Amino acid sequence: HNLTITQGKLFFHYNPKLCLSEIHKMEEVSGTKGRQERNDIALKTNGDQASCENELLKFSYIRTSFDKILLRWEPYWPPDFRDLLGFMLFYKEAPYQNVTEFDGQDACGSNSWTVVDIDPPLRSNDPKSQNHPGWLMRGLKPWTQYAIFVKTLVTFSDERRTYGAKSDIIYVQTDATNPSVPLDPISVSNSSSQIILKWKPPSDPNGNITHYLVFWERQAEDSELFELDYCLKGLKLPSRTWSPPFESEDSQKHNQSEYEDSAGECCSCPKTDSQILKELEESSFRKTFEDYLHNVVFVPRKTSSGTGAEDPRPSRKRRSLGDVGNVTVAVPTVAAFPNTSSTSVPTSPEEHRPFEKVVNKESLVISGLRHFTGYRIELQACNQDTPEERCSVAAYVSARTMPEAKADDIVGPVTHEIFENNVVHLMWQEPKEPNGLIVLYEVSYRRYGDEELHLCVSRKHFALERGCRLRGLSPGNYSVRIRATSLAGNGSWTEPTYFYVTDYLDVPSNIA
């Protein structure tokens, strides 16, 4: 807008934040220059609390790290170098490059900038070799853009010569660093050979998330399962459950009422301010606690030095998902009996873990797994792929695949051998790939016309006998059925096997 004052003059007093240069501009645009008398524009009460600059400061050096910015700028000295009290560095987070010096300023003089007072450097006698002032900004957020400017702080001049310097606002972004852990990993099994893994992005990506790394490792069953005799009275049979499938998407929606109208769909109840505040506090606490764990609990591995020492970490090797089922080394339970199943799973520490690289999504279907087997899954978020990966501390989750139908069934015939004193040795093959492992066998036998009897055969007993022995049988026709019990439950009964026990007292003698 054009402003013209045809008559009258300007009068400025007691404006401590208004620089004289701005008042002189007002004289020019209003056409009143030359009308004012000496005392109409006070030299001592206008701009006496402001830094009124008329020179431009330029930054000469900028260096960044993930949490620091090192700045240096060209030296500046007023005509009387004693008038320079120091520099004021202003900075704040700036997602967009549209910041002005006066953003967030209120009537009390406060604003949204963080201000650092910096002492002037030592003055050199040689004007050509003056030290460049600077400042190291610490405690910054990774991968965050900051708006920065600097200006001088000078003393009051009796001659009211307006001098000083100020830089333009520059924008500097800190470097990326390792992201925080992925949030809320959930693993479920939808079949006997697959596990579905879902997660949420890290709360602090500290860069642009480029991919996720998912490692999985087959877990050995508890050692007590191999040692305890679950045929003993009072000892509860062990059981394991597989990871249940995901709930429906509708039930997972946030901010939804727990109660549904019987007449149909209901609208979600909005969260109160107290609920939102509580969630923010919980989120802040979780982030602080995660940072504490990362800094205190997890110790970084030592990389190899120039002395030739090897990095103890196993090298990563990509495998196809079809090879995942046989990740671990199978060892027989008892070496003397080769027909026992290889369900003991000690994992070799030198073995390469299978892994998958996930790009542009937060889910993965891990296939080719062994049925009813526990897996430990390790999830890392990465925001750099080359020249070397920059990934987060791992988040861990466990899951067990679903049982395989008929995996616990005894394959092959049940054979028998009759000894003296009416002892019958029953023999059968253990299931080759049971659900988890076989903890015991149930032997059901009966003599024709009598009630059915049951015998429990422990895992250890089966390994020693290759089956079991029935003792003290009365003469007669017998039928026997056997079924295995694994961590997933009972298998199917075998087809009945028949044998006849004679009275050993009636056996004919070869003595003449």
Rank of each mutant, 00 (worst) to 15 (best):
Y445V: 06
R447F: 02
K302G: 01
A330L: 02
R353M: 08
V334H: 11
D506C: 04
P300A: 10
R376Q: 04
I209C: 12
L487D: 08
K233M: 13
E452D: 12
G412I: 03
A407S: 10
D503S: 12
N421T: 10
K460H: 08
S398G: 02
R301N: 02
L470D: 01
G306D: 13
Y448C: 10
H425A: 14
A395Y: 08
L235W: 12
F499D: 00
K357L: 09
S251A: 06
S444F: 12
L277C: 02
V424P: 01
T288C: 09
H425T: 07
Y498G: 10
C267E: 13
A463I: 09
I438F: 02
E465Q: 15
D222H: 15
F419S: 08
S239Y: 13
S344Q: 09
K253V: 01
F355N: 13
L437W: 02
H461I: 12
E362R: 12
E452Y: 15
L225E: 10
W216H: 03
G374Q: 13
D450H: 13
F462N: 04
K287E: 15
M402T: 06
E310S: 13
F355T: 08
F419M: 04
E420D: 11
S363C: 13
T415R: 11
P338R: 11
H416V: 12
R400V: 09
T303V: 06
E388G: 15
Q384W: 15
T340W: 14
E265Y: 01
E452A: 12
V414E: 01
R319L: 06
S304C: 05
E362F: 10
L470F: 04
Y396T: 13
G436Y: 01
S223V: 11
N435C: 02
D250Q: 07
F337I: 08
S458C: 14
S262E: 01
N422T: 08
E452V: 06
Y498H: 12
P354Q: 12
S341Y: 02
P244C: 09
S283Y: 14
S458K: 14
K317W: 04
E281Q: 12
T303K: 10
L225W: 13
Y445N: 02
K236T: 06
R471M: 06
E420N: 09
N326S: 14
G472K: 14
A263I: 12
K278V: 11
L364M: 09
P349M: 08
S392E: 05
L487A: 04
N295F: 10
S444L: 05
P349K: 13
E362N: 07
L280R: 12
F419Y: 09
H461C: 10
I438K: 01
V414G: 01
G325H: 09
Y500G: 07
R353D: 15
V331Q: 13
N510Q: 08
Y259F: 07
Y396I: 04
T415A: 12
K361G: 07
F337C: 07
S223T: 08
E281F: 14
D273F: 14
G472A: 13
G374L: 09
V329P: 09
Y500R: 08
P508K: 07
P238W: 15
F246G: 10
V365K: 02
L321I: 06
Q384A: 02
H254I: 09
S342R: 14
K278F: 08
K236E: 13
Y500W: 13
S479Y: 03
T373S: 10
F372C: 10
P475D: 03
A335F: 11
P413G: 15
N360C: 15
E430M: 13
R471H: 07
H211S: 04
T415L: 13
S223G: 05
V501I: 08
K406F: 09
S262F: 14
E290K: 06
M427P: 01
C456K: 02
G308K: 02
S341H: 12
T386M: 03
S257W: 08
P475I: 08
T340Q: 05
E217N: 15
W428L: 00
G449N: 08
F246P: 08
V393P: 01
Y396L: 10
R240F: 14
F289H: 09
E433M: 06
S223D: 12
V324S: 08
H211L: 10
R353K: 06
I366W: 01
F226S: 07
T497Q: 15
G325T: 13
V299L: 06
R319G: 15
S203G: 10
S239R: 10
K317S: 12
T485A: 12
L464S: 09
K357V: 13
S474Y: 13
V214Q: 00
N208L: 07
R376A: 05
R318D: 13
E265M: 06
P270I: 10
I377T: 02
G374W: 03
E260S: 08
L235I: 07
E279V: 05
T485C: 15
R218G: 14
D323A: 11
I418G: 05
T241M: 09
R240G: 14
S223P: 15
S458W: 04
E281A: 12
V299T: 07
D503Q: 14
Y230R: 10
D409R: 12
T502S: 07
R390P: 08
N422Q: 10
